[in-house]
Design a protein around this nucleic acid. Structure first.
Lengths: 215, 215, 215, 215
DNA sequence: GATGAATGAGCGTTCATTCAT
DNA sequence: CATGAATGAACGCTCATTCAT
């Protein structure tokens, strides 16, 4: 006979898990997971070390949960949905800056994923299958619907779809994670407009923006 | 009165440091630096554990030296030199595949830099100032010389220069480091040709490949 | 004014204590007491962990109670009573096999007593004074009544009485507790008949089984 | 190039292992192995906790080594050798008291083996195969050579051989390990002479000592 | 009376670092 | 210069015990 109703119990579990995962994310901003002790996580979360093991099977389970919780996939999905019927010419101008802002806001998570992902097969798998592939596929489908059959013969939309993220990541890594923002700042507008320009002409090929300009 | 001539002494120090740094790099292919013990490094390097501390102040000093030694900068420099006077249209077809091959070959070093870099201010600084900036600048200068004044008004060549690496990195990270190569393989040729196409049209804008096509 | 009648209350305490002690004994069949957690005991007993501490001061108090409750003494008493007036020649043939079966059935308790007893002065005391001495005395008295004055001068019946248990224990320990049953099996019948034979001739001396053989 | 000669190295390993094993044996006199911490062992041995792991793979490896080192088997072997051609009538009078003394001297080891053995399959196996079986077999062979064909049909010498140890163990356990020595002392001489008498008549059957007495 | 979430001391184990040789 | 035995702090994890509900 549990003293606490099932719903309250679930709430408690959820609260505690969040406390611990969030504390971990905070600590991971300044040091690797390996160098972050369970003691430190517990202290940061405001619970005892023993409690951490009440809610997670092991230290590693914390990072698994963390990755599960903080993925960009839902944002990407929403964004692609919202521009579904809008051509890249019209959509990229808003999509790229928004995407940039979201990636910047999650820079710490990205730092974490870049650090921990490649070294952990389980994390890698989740990252690749649950984030990269679905996100990439959505963008590829959208591109395929808009670039026209001629251009579609020349470029692979699945590959092209991944490029937009690569371009954005290049600046997240160099400006936000490697300290470029301080050492050699670049205005956000310049980053996003250049990416928009390059990607737009890049995917449209020789027909790029032709509609808007008679040749 | 030193028993050994200064030059010889320096040679020894250099030899030992290289032994240790190279051994470390080899071991980092399969596990994170944190999980690589000094014991293992010493064994792999063929020296005693004590000797490691004769040539490095601490375990961390090894990774600092490693990052200092291994950069892509010299390769980028050579490559830019070799295509200095060749237009992007003619150069990218060879440059992109070569760059791709070199990045793939160094995937372990990239994994290491992504893991250790963002968490270490000193490493970040070196990476950014000695690799990102010089490489980016060389490519930007080259681009500036070829895209023409009209296009130059529309895109920032410094930003555009970094994009080519971002595009390549997107696939190094997803295909090589996150296991995409096994889960969802893509032919190297498809990756490099798509990047070439997108980047070329992207930077050239509406004049892309105009020489080849009368308008 | 107690809400529950004193008798009922005692019943409850007794029931709960039994639940917990019995559960512990069951668990001790497969692992040492040290490696049996209070969690596991509570679960096996069907009560909460907190309840264990309602009825026992500490984990160790459970084992003390267990040892106090389970002894062979009542069985030995009954057995000696039943053969009180029967001579060893006639009695041993049935007593030894029955005793053997009872010891085999309690092998786990014996394992427990051997493990926990010698290291705990309180348990030792209980074991020795409440089990060894009374059981030994009963057997010694029975022997004294039957071996005749001549033989009584040669052997100490108190010592001899303890030997029958030693003989049986030798096989409980080696065959049942050390895995000899699997590695080098011996039929139960061979064990009990040999013990009967040796002990019988042993205690009777040169007059052993004289009834059956005119001299 | 090791600084220490191989022989010296071996000596050191042997010394350290002995230090640790002996310290462990000392501590096991008063508490179970589970409750004996590596910290305590290291302290008792006069080495650091880290050093324990320099010489033993794990805590469990210490007890394995301990059991390997302290077995009675060599003593039993020697004893059986020395009485090889002597009949039980003449031999038991000296063998039993000597065996008793040796078992008493090793009471702490026996306590340890009774406690740790049954709970550890690996220890059990070693105990049974390396101590019980060889010792038992030697004694059985010796008995078989002396009891004559007639008696050999009635008792199993392998079973009988184990009985002599059972009889001795009964008193080791009750007098030495359970505190009977203090609560209800019995003279050593009484123990050994009774065992000798009972075992001798027991194994010889109706022909026991007949040589000495015409019937 | 009954519960089980919470605690934190203590465990076995690892390993960066030191230093006598 | 080179070694590796020795160290002990720190780790991830367990679990006996407490106590608010």
């Amino acid at each position: 006979m549990p003293r606490i109703a099932a719903a309250d119990r679930e709430d408690l579990v959820e609260t505690r898990k969040s406390q611990i995962v969030d504390a971990t994310l905070r600590l991971l901003a300044s040091q690797s997971f390996d160098r972050t002790s369970v003691d430190a996580i517990a202290k940061e979360a405001g619970v005892s070390k023993g409690s951490v093991y009440l809610y997670f099977e092991s230290k590693d389970a914390i990072i698994d949960e963390l990755v599960r919780r903080y993925s960009l996939i839902r944002d990407v999905e929403k964004m692609v949905d919202s521009v579904n019927d809008i051509s890249p010419e019209d959509a990229l101008g808003t999509v790229v800056p928004v995407l940039w802002q979201q990636l910047v806001a999650r820079r710490e998570l990205i730092k974490l994923l870049l650090r921990e992902g490649p070294a952990r097969p389980d994390v890698s798998k989740v990252l690749f299958e649950k984030i990269v592939i679905p996100g990439n596929t959505m963008v590829a489908d959208w591109l395929a619907r808009h670039i026209g059959p001629e251009r579609a013969k020349e470029i692979d939309t699945f590959v092209a779809g991944r490029l937009i993220f690569g371009m954005l990541m290049a600046f997240i890594i160099t400006q936000e994670l490697l300290g470029g923002k301080d050492a050699r700042p670049i205005e956000d507008e310049k980053i996003t407009s250049t990416i928009t320009e390059v990607f737009l002409y890049g995917i449209m090929g020789r027909n790029g923006k032709k509609k808007k300009k008679a040749c």
